[in-house]
Design a protein around this nucleic acid. Sequence first.
RNA 1: GGAGGUGUAGCAUAAUUGGUAAUGCACCGGUCUUGAAAACCGGCGUCCUCACGGACUUGGGGGUUCGAGUCCCUCCACCUCCGCCA
Length: 420
Amino acid sequence: MLSIKYIRENPEVVQAAISNKGEKGDVHEILRLDKKIRQLIHDVEAKKAEKNRTNSQIVEANRNSQDADQLIKKMKKLSAEIKMGDSDLTQSRHQLNELLIWVPNIPHESVPVGVDESTNVEVRMRGEAPTFDFEIKTHLDLGTSLHLFDFERAAKISGSGFPLFTGKGAKLERGLINFMLDYHVQRGYKEVYTPFMTLPAANEATGQLPKLKEDMYFVERDNLYLIPTAEVPVTNIHRGEILSEDELPIHYVAFSPCFRREAGSYGKETRGLLRVHQFNKVELVKFVKPETSYQELERLTRDAESILKELGLHYRVVALSTGELSFAAAKCYDLEVWAPGENRWLEVSSCSNYESFQARRANIRYRRKDGKLEFVHTLNGSALATPRLTIALLETYQTDEGSVMIPEILQPYVGETVLK
RNA sequence: GGAGGUGUAGCAUAAUUGGUAAUGCACCGGUCUUGAAAACCGGCGUCCUCACGGACUUGGGGGUUCGAGUCCCUCCACCUCCGCCA
């Protein structure tokens, strides 16, 4: 959420961001309510001050055994007026909040302007697309023939879109997760293991709600959402807290399964592991001081992509343009890995700086050395999501025999040099 | 799931029959000192306001009352015991 002060002072910037991101949001109505609320605060607080004075007079009268009937009458009247004013105020604040929660974050000045992926900017690329002197298979063919996963049986259990990994496929999945966790812990991230179901308030804090409600699994009976990313529980670790300047920056790494309804995305895009309702992911989350957040974004992106580098995969880093930027992000790099069998780039990570947008919703602040309170900046990025990483690994390291070589760094984690 | 208890600032502890949150420690700044400690002074929960000031704050929400930390209802968290389950 943006600060009302910022909107008040930069209405045209906010309106432009709403348009660029294709969001709804009514700046005029927001400003009207804001004005009304500030007037109400002024009026009601004046009455409350009068009430507090009158109460003191009653105490004084009682102490001197004087008649306080007139004063009590006055208190009654004031109390009734205050009650009405407070009620109006609460309602107006609620209305304003309902509008503010739909206003997206403002893109950083370095974000390329444009409406779709055609205006994204490739920042850097590593390696080259592997070439093969035999007819290559897709990950689905490889995984099926090597018995790494079994989508037909998985559908019996949960319907389509829920992977079932078997044997060495399961071992590969577990190995990837452990490799990535160990790797980031070594680089100074603190490992956390979180709840996988979260309260509505936690999802509003990170910006998943209200916009992405349709994409979330929800357990109505207990009023809990299944997490679509570890970003939600990890960011909420510090919800409502005031951190000290000394403990910043905070770097977390978390493994979690992720649950996404992926409403309305059926078709061949969902073949195999391309787009699934449940997948595993290692996530990096940072809480930092505002002045360092863009530096931290670069480092976070480097940390995430180093997994691809270590695994020897061909990938590129793409800076999203304003139209592609998610609701809560001010700037975002996507990591895309090359999948030879699919013959295209696959997104395996989004590394975003939310600036104070999430911190304001989640009320996460820190106290500067000079005593002033300020919102932290939050960042996060996948490092990485396993399904598309697995696709790239299988398709990149396949052999003419239909087996798959395991990159050396991963071998201790999988306990194999080759899947055959 | 059942019964009982607890919840006050970073921590720890107060608040007659309801009268509007007191104190200690820790922390920050200042005075003093060669420096530090001690002592003393100030700050030490949030919001509005250019400011002066003012308002709010006892786990959350609601109610009674002119007035609620205090009385009532409700939800939450934690503790103790019982039951159930892996």
